[in-house]
Design a protein around this nucleic acid. Structure first.
Length: 271
DNA sequence: AAGGCGACCTGGAAGC
DNA sequence: TGCTTCCAGGTCGCCT
């Protein structure tokens, strides 16, 4: 479900409900997600939520003694609910608060994660390996061009690689490449600086638009209050293989790259 | 070092 | 109807 916009929409949705709230209970119903949920999460009882941030696709809930990291994997969702709401299938983890609300993680495939980052324990390995935030000033003109030098991977695979830039998943990689007029198979190292700068601008725009629209609702993504996101209605290529390009009426094609589907317009997009 | 690919897991849709 | 196969928003870690 979640690429950067969906995680950001989730962050914005849950923040007003849990900011400054004191944790009254931590419930682990299924400890085995991508990694086991660490026992340290019990130390949150009695602590107050100081801030809710995001890095890449990780939600970061900050407390005085460390940070709770939540990753939604492919199928995870987080909702703020009344603490008394009956538990449903795949509800693996709850944080209950003094205001009788609870943050509840549901994740059928369990590719998600709940991790604990103690204060002063600087970035566990995976956080330190992440590339720049696409919506930040660290993701500038020239960055992709320099990063792509001598790289022989297809641009689509390159964009979805976290060490290059975070948060761009399969949906938005497909959409951004369509809007930039670049074929997903074009080799990253072969693209001109000008085209990669255009791509940089488009990635920022596509992600920002998606956040504004409340994310992309496919099967199971909803905002924290259960409302759907509306960006799905703006998708140009993702999920539209075999249908006509909105721009030129050509039939959209689909291929597989790194075991992920890529949809593109053979007429609007070039090497 | 860079690139390719299997692995992790469940469930819904499509195919037979 | 029911069984089988394929596919899905991510990303780690092993192999070449």
């Amino acid at each position: 479900m979640p690429e950067l916009p969906e995680v950001e929409v989730c962050r914005l949705g849950i923040t007003p409900h849990i900011i400054d709230q004191q944790v009254t209970d931590v419930v682990v119903r299924h400890k085995q997600l991508r990694w086991p949920i660490p026992d340290e999460v019990q130390s949150l009882v009695g602590k107050k939520v100081l801030a809710i941030k995001r890095r890449s696709k990780y939600l970061m809930i900050e407390f005085s003694h460390g940070t709770l990291l939540i990753h939604l994997g492919m199928s995870g969702t987080i909702r703020v609910i009344d603490a008394s709401t009956p538990v449903a299938k795949h509800d693996h983890f709850d944080l209950a608060f003094a205001n009788k609300k609870a943050l509840r993680l549901n994740d059928p495939r369990r590719f998600g994660a709940v991790l604990w980052l103690a204060e002063h324990v600087d970035e566990q390995g995976f956080l330190s390996k992440l590339g720049p935030e696409p919506l930040s000033d660290d993701f500038t003109h020239g960055y992709l061009f320099n990063k792509a030098k001598n790289r022989k991977v297809p641009i689509k695979t390159f964009l979805m690689s976290n060490p290059v830039v975070v948060g761009v998943g399969n949906i938005y990689a497909n959409e951004a490449l369509f809007k930039a007029g670049i074929l997903p198979t074009a080799l990253a190292g072969n693209l001109s600086e000008k085209r990669l700068n255009t791509l940089t601008d488009i990635i920022k725009k596509v992600l920002a638009d998606a956040i504004e629209q409340g994310g992309t609702t496919l099967k199971d993504f909803t905002q924290a209050d259960g409302r759907p996101g509306y960006f799905a209605q703006k998708l140009q290529v993702y999920g539209r293989a075999g249908e006509k390009c909105f721009t030129c009426q050509e039939t959209l094609e689909e291929i597989r790259q790194s075991n992920r589907s890529s949809v593109f317009c053979p007429s609007c997009q070039q090497e």
